[in-house]
Design a protein around this nucleic acid. Structure first.
Lengths: 142, 142
DNA sequence: TTGCGTGCAAAGGTTTTGCATGGCA
DNA sequence: TGCCATGCAAAACCTTTGCACGCAA
């Protein structure tokens, strides 16, 4: 016996939440953004409910949860079925605060190398590279 | 003029905080632990002040800030003076807390790649890779 | 009908902010 | 003396929990 899975009723809210994430084509959102979206749509969904669904979906591996120390609130992202581009790293500019999403190939190189050569499995859901983005490089040298 | 650096008065609190971190020989502490320490010592230091100093020191690269378990409080750790520590990357195991110093050409290659191709200059001093170390991989799958 | 799902309100915990006062330069 | 630093209290945030009611099965 693994988990004692609750029951998993197919509720209106559950469907809307999953549909919403699926419709974002890879972008990730916070609970707050989602709540605002549903509120604007008309019939909102309680934030408690959103939290519970996102946690459950993340636990099931249907969506991905990013916990970046910045900004505080967690982000959730739908996982495409085709599995090509998945997790990405985040680059955070220390100067302007921009968060850059760094896709795939480099990520996998870094991750594979560190795993094979250094016996360390990187958690991209949490790791953030700090530095300066192109726009801020050259502005001044602080 | 670059930044308008506040002023940096040498205050009693500032000295005690830095001394305390330095005295921990590598261990890291939360704001709460630090506050409790100073309280026990006799004349406590306001937690607001502790927050402000730790944030500043982390921003200056004098100490490192970790955000280990989600939702929990951040940890801060003194960075040894030896300049080597500033050049390489750090891997932090989310499970056992071990900090690994990674000196590796491949990583520098990747860093160069990210700079050239993605126009982002990584600050190795502030960047920490989170994940699981070799010892903890395989223990369980949480 | 049964019992999970929902959502409001409140709790819990960390970090930030407002503001009067203290202390360094 | 001029300002920054301090620290109390309160606010701001994110997330979780308690609980009564609603709704899927």
């Amino acid at each position: 016996m693994e988990h004692n899975r609750p029951a998993n009723y197919a509720t209106r809210q559950g469907k809307r939440i999953l549909d919403y994430l699926e419709s974002l084509s890879g972008r990730h959102v916070t609970v707050n953004e989602a709540a605002r979206y549903f509120a604007d749509e008309g019939s909102g969904i309680g934030q408690t409910t959103i939290y519970r669904h996102l946690e459950k979906l993340a636990g099931e591996g249907r969506i991905r949860k990013y916990v970046l120390s910045e900004g505080k609130s967690a982000c959730y992202q739908y996982i495409e079925d085709d599995a090509e581009c998945r997790e990405h790293f985040h680059l955070k500019c220390e100067e302007c605060g921009t968060l850059i999403h760094l896709e795939c190939d480099v990520l996998n190189k870094i991750r594979r190398h560190i795993f094979k050569e250094h016996r360390f499995r990187i958690n991209a859901l949490k790791t953030v590279f700090y530095g300066r983005c192109g726009n801020c490089i050259g502005k001044d040298e602080t």
